[in-house]
Computed example of a mutant assay.
Amino acid sequence: MKKYDYLIVGSGLFGSIFAYEANKIGKKCLVIEKRDHIGGNIYTEKIEDINVHKYGAHIFHTSNKETWEYINKFAEFNRYTNSPIAIYKDEVYNLPFNMNTFNKLWGVKTPMEAKEIIDSQIEESKTNSPKNLEEQAISLVGKDIYEKLIKGYTQKQWGKACTELPAFIIKRLPVRFTYDNNYFNDLYQGIPIGGYTQIIENMLENIDVKVNYDFFEHKDELMENCEKILFTGMIDEYYNYCYGSLEYRSLKFEDEILDLKNYQGNAVVNYTDYEVPYTRIIEHKHFEFDTQSSKTIITREYPKGWNIGDEPYYPINDEKNNLLYNKYKKLSEEDNKVIFGGRLGQYKYFDMNIVIEEALKCVNKELKSNE
Rank of each mutant, 00 (worst) to 15 (best):
G152Y: 04
A19F: 12
N78I: 06
N266Y: 04
E358G: 06
F177Q: 03
D310Y: 08
E366F: 12
A57R: 01
Y4S: 04
K104N: 04
G342M: 13
E366A: 00
L323R: 15
E48W: 10
A137M: 15
S63G: 11
T232F: 03
N128G: 11
H53L: 05
D318G: 09
T127I: 14
D310G: 06
T154S: 15
K365L: 08
F18L: 01
N202M: 08
W158E: 06
H286I: 09
V108G: 02
E247Y: 02
L258D: 04
C162G: 06
E45L: 14
G142W: 12
F215S: 09
S63T: 12
D259N: 14
R343W: 04
Y146S: 03
E66G: 10
G341Y: 04
F97D: 01
S83T: 14
W306H: 13
N51Y: 12
I71Y: 08
E256K: 13
G40W: 12
E227R: 13
E217H: 08
S11N: 08
L331M: 14
Q121I: 00
D290H: 13
S332E: 00
W68T: 04
C226S: 13
F177P: 00
E237A: 04
E357G: 03
E224A: 14
S120M: 09
D36Q: 13
L187W: 08
I191Y: 09
D236W: 02
A114P: 01
Y302W: 10
V108Y: 10
T279F: 02
G341E: 06
E301T: 06
G12K: 12
F253W: 08
K329A: 10
E247H: 08
Y243S: 02
D144R: 02
L165V: 07
L251Y: 01
Y43G: 03
N103M: 09
M203V: 07
E333C: 06
H218T: 07
